[in-house]
Simulated assay, not measured.
Amino acid sequence: MSYLIKPKGYKPLLDLKQTELGIKQIKDFFQMNLSSELRLRRVTAPLFVLKGMGINDDLNGIERPVAFPIKDMGEVSAEVVHSLAKWKRLTLADYGIEPGYGIYTDMNAIRPDEEMGNLHSLYVDQWDWERVITTEDRNVEFLKEIVNRIYAAMIRTEYMVYEMYPQIKPWLPAKIHFIHSEELLQLYPELDPKGREDAIAKKYGAVFIIGIGGKLSNGKKHDGRAPDYDDYTTLDSNGLAGLNGDLLVWDEVLQRSIELSSMGIRVDKDALLKQLKEKGEEARLELYFHKRLMNDSLPLSIGGGIGQSRLCLFYLRKAHIGEIQASIWPDEMRKECMELNMPLI
């Protein structure tokens, strides 16, 4: 079911031509800064992969991939990627990337099960990135260092937008706030996960929530994660589980938090076995990706995705992701958005 946030008195700060120019400038500038901060080289990525190899991202395990048969390969089935979380790690190995360096690419996906609204579309576009790390890097402090580097690129991009369009005033705080999902639960025990995200993002402006995928002290997860890419069970020095997290900012237009990036240190063999066992998914160990990980032919890595359309929505102070990207929307939503000064592309 679609859901529409209706900001009172919303009026776009940019017309359509200014918006298209702004999108181009943001994407060019941010990916250049991201590449520089994390020492990433650009690679070409697939739109689809073969089914049954364990390469496609399973997200929460319930989303249906778009699939189709390939006539010239005996009707074998291919799937449009949900993301490139596992494909990137294979690529790091195949390209022989050294520790401290990595790759990034434009990831385009179709997610037919998305609940369409201001921030969710059938079409997903993001920068997917992955970097080789060492055993010594597999800790929360290294995760925070990488987050700070990404956030530095975000700060510079926001200022670039302000220089282009002075009517768009910077919102981002100088520093991003870190908090573990368990600490967040203790801080706001009366709120659900989305409510907790809104509360902490509104308080600090930008926040990175550590530990997404494992159960908290209330027996529930903050949010779901597939068991075979992010490490959400390894404990830190304080006994809190998780070497991954989500980067959120507070959006003044929509008056809510927006998740701009999901990322984390990836599973090693021990974490993979533990997380698959917890989910009852040990059968995945027979898949191509998992065999490569278990036979030590994949490097240790950290990686994530950064939403392109969402980043542009935030920087250009738009109220609906359909003002940034072309997609399919319910007729009723298109009509309502036009009445609310939110013309959908």
Rank of each mutant, 00 (worst) to 15 (best):
T233R: 05
K335Y: 09
A201W: 04
E63L: 10
Q308G: 06
S217T: 13
I5V: 15
G9A: 07
I5Y: 03
G211S: 03
T135C: 10
D270P: 00
Q18I: 00
Y123W: 05
D15H: 01
Q325P: 14
D268M: 06
K220R: 13
V253H: 00
Y165V: 02
D128F: 03
Y10C: 04
K86V: 00
Y95A: 14
L273A: 11
P170T: 08
Y151W: 11
V253W: 02
P227S: 02
Q325E: 13
R149N: 10
S237P: 02
S262T: 09
R317N: 11
E336L: 14
E281S: 13
Q167W: 01
E79S: 02
L40S: 00
I258M: 15
A45V: 04
E332I: 05
Q31G: 00
L4Y: 07
M73N: 13
L247S: 09
K11Q: 14
A206N: 08
K269E: 15
K51Y: 11
W87T: 07
L313N: 06
N148I: 12
S257P: 02
D28G: 07
G264V: 06
E114Q: 12
G242V: 02
L92Q: 08
Y159R: 13
A206Q: 05
C312F: 06
I306S: 01
S77N: 13
K274S: 12
L216R: 14
I176V: 15
M1P: 03
I23D: 00
V140Y: 00
N148R: 15
W87M: 04
G9I: 04
K335W: 06
L16R: 14
A174R: 15
L50M: 12
S301L: 01
E75I: 02
M164T: 04
E20Y: 12
E182W: 04
I306V: 06
K274I: 11
V147P: 02
G100C: 01
E114I: 07
G305F: 00
D230T: 15
P173I: 08
G304T: 05
I62G: 01
K51A: 12
R334L: 15
C337M: 11
I306F: 13
M263A: 14
K27I: 14
I321E: 06
D270W: 05
C337I: 07
L119D: 03
K274Y: 04
D223G: 11
D125I: 05
I200G: 07
D228Y: 10
M263N: 09
S35C: 07
